[in-house]
């Protein structure tokens, strides 16, 4: 769509009508006086939750025979299917955590 002289005229009228930025006149001071304390985000609930979650997982999975076999195989250097499954699960979780961290970093 071509930009005509009439478009310029209308835009010029719109610009002329706009008074531009308003002078401070104490506005900033009034805002700052009303500013409450910033809410402090405590980290301990998050880390407590993570610790409890890890403990719960460990407790649930520790009696799993497949996991025990895989773990023993991995420690012993024997790459049995169970050991590979454990390795793949750990790698998958690490990859997920990395992708999440990158996504959060991009959004910040």
């Amino acid at each position: 769509m071509t930009h005509s002289r009439e478009d310029d005229a209308v835009e010029a009228l719109l610009q002329r009508q706009f008074e531009g930025a308003v002078a401070d006149d104490g506005f900033c001071d009034r805002v700052m006086k009303r500013l409450p304390a910033r809410p402090r985000h405590r980290a301990w609930p998050l880390w407590s939750g993570i610790a409890v979650g890890v403990a719960a997982c460990a407790s649930t999975l520790s009696s799993n025979p497949g996991l025990q076999l895989g773990w023993r195989g991995w420690i012993g250097g024997d790459m049995s299917p169970s050991a590979l499954a454990v390795l793949a699960a750990l790698a998958g979780m690490s990859l997920l955590a990395m992708c999440w961290s990158l996504a959060e970093a991009d959004g910040g």
Binding site: E19, A21, V22, D24, F27, C28, V31, M32, L35
Partner: peptide
Amino acid sequence: RRAFEQLVRRHQGMVRAQLR
């Protein structure tokens, strides 16, 4: 808070103009 005050000073003029 001084950094936020800077943000307010930088942008209050146009935000108030928008609202007016």
